[in-house]
Amino acid sequence: MTGSALSSAASPVLAVEHLRKAFGAHVVLRDVSLSVAQGECVVLIGASGSGKSTLLRCVNLLERADDGIVRLDGVDITDPRVDADAVRSRIGMVFQAYNLFPHLSVLDNVTLAPIRVHKLAPEPARAAGLAMLERVGLSHKAAARPDSLSGGQQQRVAIARALVSTPRVMLLDEVTSALDPELVGEVLDLLRDLKSDGMTMILNTHEMGFARQVADTVCFLDGGGIVEQGSPDAVLGHPSHARTRQFLSRLRV
């Protein structure tokens, strides 16, 4: 199945329509539209400052968009009458710097949202948390403090923390950028598993090889908009736009 076939499916999980976001006079996103189908993996590429992270933060309502609409399962979540906390609980987000809670054990990091947001009793939450840690291969670290873990392990915990609430879509913001090169593999392997399980994801990355493997759709962001969008082969292999070619050639040097 190709990315474009997926994006044209009848009801996308996530739809971004004419999104605009500026910080003061600096316009980060000018007019961005994007559609993500069930099970689709969209990879955002672009130079630093091209608005990839801002786009993810707007989708998760961590930043308020200046204009435009974000729809989750067809519902406009940018409507101020919508309960933003409830929306966020259905969207998983993983950050570049892991952002684990240092005062909580690994297991408590994972079970915080199930207990406090989804109102699960401690026992089932614990069971779900341990099962999720098992899945990312870290159940033996359940009682450890986050800062006693390696960067790769911390990021896998962060992914487990986001996954345990069975989100509709996962937003992954440069999740391997802070990792030592030899630790990148374990996190990418996990993302590959997620993809094969049918998780819908949007991810920002500089790992072009990885993007080529897992992406259904690659979007190149530049100048506040999506310059080029299509299958990884098309965008990364045969870019039609000069700015895309320029960006990719700089990466290969």
Binding site: G92, M93, F95, V117, R161
Partner: peptide
């Protein structure tokens, strides 16, 4: 602020984030 962002991204409210994180 990244601690706030992480907690809010999980769906915790302002009050819950303050209380638990």
């Amino acid at each position: 602020p990244s601690q706030w962002a992480a907690a809010r991204s999980l769906g915790l409210t302002y009050r819950q984030t303050l209380r638990h994180v």
